[in-house]
Amino acid sequence: MTTAPMELFAGTPRNARDHRVEWLVRTLLGMMTALLIVPVVIVLALLVVRGGSAISWEFLTTPPVDGMTAGGILPALVGTVWLVAVALVASVPVGVAAAVYLSEYAPDNWLTRSINLAIINLAGVPSIVHALFGVGAFVLFFRFGTSILAASLTLAVMTLPVVIVSTRESLQAVPRAFREACWNMGATRWQTIRRIVLPNAVSGILTGIILEVSRTSGETAPIMFTGAAFFLPFLPQGVLDQTMAMSLHLFVIATQVPDAPDALPFGVALVLISMVLAMNALSIGFRIYVRGRKKW
């Protein structure tokens, strides 16, 4: 494995056989890549075909009726917006602070390594374990009850790594020479961060936040027992209310409402995935746009 390339390739000029193998491998790998993507595209197309008929202005703006076999999805849509908004308010400041610490302050020591390991684990712990944490911590210990607040905080902890990682990346993309030039002028670390680093990283941070919105709005397990309800005919009035949510609504319609017309769950799935993918595409597009703008 560690043999020097010299020996590996000595006396192997490019011949016709090598080129055939090359072509074959390339085609095979290309086909496998396609097999990964094409079925999903077909499935998404199926969602559109089978769910498209359910979607109308009324579908988006009225609550479910008749035991959720008819009507719209308004409370679920509004609920998801609530959950995402509160989760962002909680996680963005903490996440950005953590990223600033890791990028601008953290020395290379055991504490920093522990923080990085903790971030990897926050992202890797199963969502249902986050749900258990949410129940144990926010619902019971802090006595928020099953509420938007408890559910959003659970989501916030879970998606914290998304904000941290993307913010840290965009902070580190700002060349160190700019910081040193600033420090040399007598600027404090914070003055340097505020005037030079953050303004040049803000688009990257925004990209990360949009990504977090996308992730948060699709999560189901963490909110099942912390604040999302199967059915509520009214809209939430505050953060201590329970709420419906798009993701849980899809689960409920698909598994608990057997006599719902076929197009209904497909319609809910279509709306949910459109929200998530639109956010994601926005984040990707924004990233490409920012990359194209040269500032140094």
């Binding site: 700019f178 600033c182 040399n184």
Partner: peptide
């Protein structure tokens, strides 16, 4: 230390135009 640095101007061989 910031007050000290603010009274010392430095110019290094590699020019650094800040992204402002």
């Amino acid at each position: 230390v910031y007050a000290l640095r603010s009274r010392i101007g430095v110019v290094f061989p590699l020019p650094v135009g800040l992204p402002l």
